[in-house]
Simulated scan of single mutants.
Amino acid sequence: MQFGIFTVGDVTTDPTTGHTISEHDRIKAMVTIALKAEEVGLDVFATGEHHNPPFVPSSPTTMLGYIAARTERLILSTSTTLITTNDPVKIAEDYAMLQHLADGRVDLMMGRGNTGPVYPWFGQDIRQGIPLAIENYALLHDLWRKDVVDWQGKFRTPLQGFTSTPRPLDGVPPFVWHGSIRSPEIAEQAAYYGDGFFANNIFWPKEHYIRLIGLYRQRYAHYGHGTPEQAIVGLGGQVFMRRNSQDAVNEFRPYFDNAPVYGHGPSLEDFTEQTPLTVGSPQQVIDRTLTFRESFGDYQRQLFLMDHAGLPLKTVLEQLDLLGEEVVPVLRKEFANGRPESVPDAPTHESLRKVSA
């Protein structure tokens, strides 16, 4: 079971002080957070990709390459890579290069993003979002697995005798997760290729994700990759902790109430009841996270969102200390209890290399 954090890289005014961090300081803070993640024993750091304010991570490979040079163990991922508006050729080249620089500590989460204006900025039509995701990933899949590619599709110019360079490290492409919060077509795509499916369950009730993950597991088995229980599932999560639960609620409330995504909407109490957001003590986070297995089955990766809504870096680092020291060790032990031997671990470069040898 892999545990880690993901960031959306928002630049948001701290509602308790009125201070707005600069883009420069936010970028540096994201690096500091990644280094802290490795220090406290987490497995994964993932960054989003955005091309509009108030977000800064427009170039994930640049950031992850820098972090790779300063870490030794941390798996570097995305959350997500925009498969719809990026050229698959450039994705193939950029992430293969990152894979070499990080000695294989790289995987990707493919997604369509949630910002409509991005499509025309990159010459695409949002109404073609699903067809773009399907066609672009089919090309990317080939580019990493075929030394010479001849290809023709609807959304980009044809390729004739094209070789993407560098080739994937050890001939093993980075593992791919397909991220979605709403689209059964993406669950189907992940199942078809035998890739991972990441359900970022931070907004909607669990019943929605039970259906989506259930579809992915069923179709994964249909395509002959294994049993439904052997499908590779990742989940998002969102937490804020203090040792005293009421202190956590009191401290986080102004950030929740003014957050760019859900601020000025439902109450904190309603949101925590209806979604996986957990605000409270480390034990409450442990107890809530353990219920995910009851809903979704045994799964392979759990990522938490912790650095958003204007939270100061000092606070985020304190959260990571609690996560790494008090929460994740217990979760590792409890998730291992009763886990069937037939359920695989999350793929890594090393495990994929052994399979391909």
Rank of each mutant, 00 (worst) to 15 (best):
M1K: 03
M1I: 12
Q2E: 09
F3G: 01
I5P: 02
G9P: 10
D10A: 11
V11Q: 09
D14I: 04
T17C: 06
I21A: 06
S22N: 08
S22H: 10
R26T: 12
I27M: 13
A29E: 08
L35H: 07
L42Y: 04
T47K: 05
F55D: 04
T62A: 08
G65R: 06
A68R: 04
L74T: 01
L76A: 04
L76P: 02
S77F: 00
T78Q: 01
S79V: 06
T80L: 02
I83S: 03
T85E: 13
P88I: 02
K90H: 14
A92F: 10
L98K: 02
Q99G: 03
G104T: 11
G113T: 05
T115F: 11
T115V: 15
P117E: 05
V118C: 09
P120H: 11
W121L: 15
F122W: 04
F122S: 10
Q124L: 06
D125R: 03
I126V: 14
G129L: 15
L132T: 01
A133N: 04
L139R: 05
W144Y: 08
D147M: 09
K154G: 07
K154E: 13
F155W: 11
R156Q: 09
T157A: 08
T163M: 05
T165P: 07
P168D: 04
L169Y: 11
L169G: 00
L169D: 03
D170W: 06
V172M: 00
P174H: 00
P174L: 00
F175V: 00
V176D: 00
W177Y: 10
I181K: 07
I186W: 00
Q189S: 13
N200L: 02
N201M: 10
I202H: 09
F203N: 04
K206F: 14
K206R: 15
R219E: 15
H222I: 09
P228N: 10
Q230H: 10
A231H: 03
G236N: 05
F240M: 10
R242K: 15
R243Q: 06
S245Y: 12
D247M: 12
V249P: 13
N258F: 07
N258K: 14
L268H: 07
Q274L: 10
Q274F: 05
L277H: 12
P282R: 11
Q283D: 14
Q283S: 05
Q284T: 11
I286M: 14
T291H: 07
R293N: 11
G297M: 11
G297A: 08
D298V: 12
Y299E: 03
D307I: 09
D307F: 15
D307L: 10
A309E: 14
V316L: 02
L320G: 03
L322Y: 07
G324V: 01
E325S: 08
V328H: 10
V330Q: 09
R332H: 11
R332V: 02
K333R: 12
F335W: 10
A336T: 08
G338F: 08
P340Y: 06
P344K: 07
D345P: 01
S351V: 09
L352K: 01
R353N: 06
R353K: 15
K354I: 03
S356D: 08
